[in-house]
């Protein structure tokens, strides 16, 4: 069956089976492989994408459920060239090693900091505890998120 949705600002359509997950649709049908799949059962958070403003597990949502939705993936969070302040903060704090969990971390944090640019360290830890990183020990990820808050506070102020 065919679905129509908006992905990273562009209207797209995809031919999907009823059982196809949103993550598989993005990866295999729309060739947006930045969204990763680490467990397919909703625990690791690697597949997190932003659907209508909320961080959502792409492996727990069916592609057909995304009919008409606005979806943002890690590719959509990225600039034409260079790094966003959140990405820059990750690089600066060495908040990634193998990079496999990173797209899910970035989408989760982007959704959080867009809504709550003042989020406390505890709040950030709490939200990120739904995303598994096996490499970093998380400490640098929290540091990066704390650092990136300023840019979200500013862009909220700009609005």
């Amino acid at each position: 069956m065919k679905i129509e949705l908006e992905v990273n600002g562009a209207a797209v359509s995809a031919e999907v089976t009823p059982r196809m997950t949103l993550a598989d649709c993005l990866r295999h049908e729309l060739h947006l492989t930045g969204t990763h799949v680490g467990c397919e059962h909703g625990v690791c958070g690697a597949c997190t994408v932003i659907v209508n403003g909320d961080a959502v597990r792409g492996c727990l949502m069916l592609a057909v459920q995304a009919q008409g939705a606005k979806v943002t993936t890690v590719e959509g969070l990225s600039l034409e060239e260079g790094l966003t302040p959140l990405q820059q903060a990750f690089k600066h704090h060495h908040a990634l090693q193998c990079g496999f969990c990173t797209p899910g971390m970035l989408t989760t944090l982007h959704a959080l900091l867009t809504d709550e640019p003042e989020a406390s360290e505890e709040r950030i830890r709490d939200v990120i505890s739904g995303n598994i990183c096996r490499c970093t020990g998380y400490v640098p990820i929290i540091e990066a998120a704390m650092d990136a808050r300023a840019s979200y506070q500013q862009s909220r102020g700009d609005k």
Partner: peptide
């Protein structure tokens, strides 16, 4: 980091 942060890594299933 640059490619990983932009979702441009190339892992096996990609």
């Amino acid at each position: 980091d640059y490619r990983f942060l932009r979702g441009e890594g190339q892992y096996l299933d990609d």
